[in-house]
Design a binder for these strands. Structure first.
Length: 558
RNA sequence: GCCUCUGUAGCUCAGGGGAUAGAGCGCCGGUUUCCGGUACCGUAGGUCGGGGGUUCGAAUCCCUCCAGGGGCACCA
């Protein structure tokens, strides 16, 4: 029996009791109200509920007395060994071994599906993250969002949502022009312009542009503007391709790369550009006004701290105007919730983006979510462009590997600042959690291999035999997994998966140390060994499922 | 100045109002001739930044103060 099933039973029982006490008046009780917890103390049973304390006041009852009534009904359920009242009104529930052990078979049978749910079924979610300018390689500053965003997306999908991963390419505007001039100068061997992008990669892009565009030096002499345009475009495509390659190596996959340029471009028949159309739509809604020779949007109507401009004095659209058109594009493409994953250096955007959703006629509570993540540093050094000590994602992948990097970046809440220690990520002992978890998986695979050789198979399953303390503990952990995934999806916190996997791996190692699957010495193989093989395989399966949600591999050997 | 995040063991950090606040590392001490010891077990280590409040119950929610990170563009 899983904790969710237990919670559902509890909710039913509690509702009946409250109805009887209230003279037939129904009281709504949800599974969330009766969610059970794994007590820290083993003497408090397998699962504990505080539902009696929560509801006692509401119905004017004595908590312990109400708990007692619930406990008696729970104890009568099939699969329950005992249910006791403790402390101020906790209900401590112990499953019988067979009921608890049944989980092992269920996990093996469900395989990859174990942990998936329909919690968010029917929801269409747009998940935008990374969105780094295509003017240079991805670096550590982007990696946290890449790892986190992709994992959130995987977790949401596991909860049944339909998610589109989207990367917004800032391929319009001054930064691109600067990028083009930088690469052109590099291609022609000219000194770098005053404000040029620094970095060796500019030289590389210059060489590639020179090779790709025949007669570039001549063209630059006769028509500088044409040469610049050609180089800029070639370098942009090259850089974007390299970014995609890096993300691919990082096991991060986008469904849509959305070009900002398309928002500025008029339609084929001269129709207004998406930006113009967006401004018109917002104007029709009464959110747009003109002042000081500029077009404004009244975001203060939706809680922003100041109104924002759509056009600069020179008539050019601001970045925010493109944001507005982009938001409307997402809305028009049928997405309900739009999630933005931004770095803490962009937290000032939360107010205006949220207001934009409101102005677009969306619900600012449910249709937009802006997740703000704190910044990362590695070995004590902040890795920012400004400081000049960029560490490129490709270098990090080569040094640390995708698995270690993804795992470490995903194992902390987004709002917690993160300090990575490069040596720790490389270590192959249990001070490196990714290794510890992967080792548990590899170990379960080793047991499988040995079981085959020893003639142990899954032809018998007697869950009532799984009575060792470490087996009860391991089964409890395995039962928690679906709830962990659901919670991670609801809260958009994939680090819960990582923390859970570390606990699961610890339970697995402890069990392995105490309970043998392969008989020792002359001991004959029995149903206990065969049943334990199910438990071993179930553990490996859950670790595999969990690591997949983090985009981390589960090798069979290390 | 305003907004925002953070403050928990020596270090890096978990902890969705519940029972005696946890993990890893580090320190000290142990363990199975045999399924991978890359593991497991144990000891020590805490004014949960300070102070108020809400609650039967607060590391958790609210207020305030202190300290640190980030942000406050007709830039992108």
């Amino acid at each position: 029996m899983t904790p969710q099933e237990l919670a559902a039973q509890l909710a039913r029982i509690l509702a009946e009791i409250l109805e009887a006490r209230g003279g037939g008046e129904t009281v709504a009780v949800t599974e969330a109200d009766t969610a059970v917890e794994r007590p820290k103390n083993r003497e408090h049973g397998d699962w504990a509920s505080n539902a009696a304390m929560k509801f006692a006041k509401r119905v004017g009852a004595n908590p312990r007395e109400l708990a007692q009534q619930i406990a008696e009904a729970v104890a009568a359920l099939e699969g329950i060994a005992k249910a006791e009242v403790a402390g101020p009104g906790f209900i401590n529930i112990t499953l019988d071994a067979a009921s608890a052990g049944e989980t092992a078979r269920r996990i093996v049978e469900q395989g990859e599906a174990y942990g998936r749910s329909e919690l968010l079924a029917g929801e269409r979610i747009n998940m935008e993250f990374v969105s780094a300018n295509p003017t240079g390689p991805l670096h550590l500053g982007h990696t946290r969002w890449a790892a986190l965003g992709d994992s959130i997306s995987r977790v949401l999908r596991a909860a049944g949502a339909q998610v589109t991963n989207e990367y917004y390419i800032n391929d319009a505007g001054a930064q691109m022009d600067k990028f083009g001039r930088s690469v052109l100068a590099a291609a022609l061997g000219e000194p770098a312009p005053e404000d040029a992008y620094p970095g060796e990669y500019i030289q590389e892009l210059g060489k590639k542009a020179l090779a790709a565009i025949p007669g570039l030096p001549d063209l630059a002499m006769t028509d500088r503007a044409a040469a610049l345009a050609a180089v800029q475009e070639a370098a942009y495509q090259q850089q974007l391709a390299e970014i995609k390659d890096s993300l691919d190596r990082f096991n991060v996959h986008f469904d849509v790369f959305f070009s900002e340029r398309t928002l500025h471009a008029p339609g084929p028949g001269g129709e207004p550009s998406p930006i113009e159309a967006a401004i018109d739509r917002l104007r029709e809604q009464g959110h747009v006004f003109e002042a000081d020779d500029a077009i404004w949007v009244r975001t203060t109507d939706y809680g922003d701290d100041k109104d924002r401009v759509f056009t600069r004095g020179n008539g050019i659209y601001t970045y925010f105007a493109a944001d507005a058109a982009y938001y409307l594009s997402k809305k028009d493409r049928g997405f309900g919730e739009k999630i933005y994953l931004l770095g803490a250096d962009h937290h000032g955007y939360v107010g205006r983006l949220t207001a934009l959703a409101g102005a677009a006629g969306d619900n600012t509570e449910t249709d937009i979510t802006v997740l703000i993540g704190q910044l990362v540093n590695l070995n004590g050094a902040r890795l920012s462009k400004r400081a000049g000590n960029i560490v490129e994602l490709d270098d990090l992948l080569e040094w640390l590997g995708s698995d270690a990097l993804r795992y470490w970046l995903a194992r902390y809440p987004a709002d917690s600042p993160l300090a990575l220690d490069g040596e720790k990520l490389r270590s192959r002992t249990n001070d490196n959690p990714v290794f510890y978890v992967q080792y548990a998986h590899a170990r379960s695979c080793a047991v499988d291999r040995n079981a085959v050789a020893a003639g142990i198979d899954r032809s018998a399953f007697e869950p009532a035999l799984l009575t060792h303390e470490t087996e009860t503990e391991l089964l409890g952990k395995l039962q928690q997994y679906p709830g962990i995934v659901a919670g991670a999806a609801e809260l958009r916190e994939p680090h819960r998966i990582a923390r859970y996997l570390e606990e699961l791996a610890a339970s697995f190692h402890r069990w392995y140390d105490n309970c043998r699957v392969i008989p020792q010495g002359d001991e004959p193989a029995g149903d206990l060994h065969r049943t334990r093989l199910w438990l071993n395989d179930a553990s490996g399966q859950v670790i595999r499922n969990g690591l997949d949600l983090l985009g981390v591999s589960a090798p069979e050997r290390l």
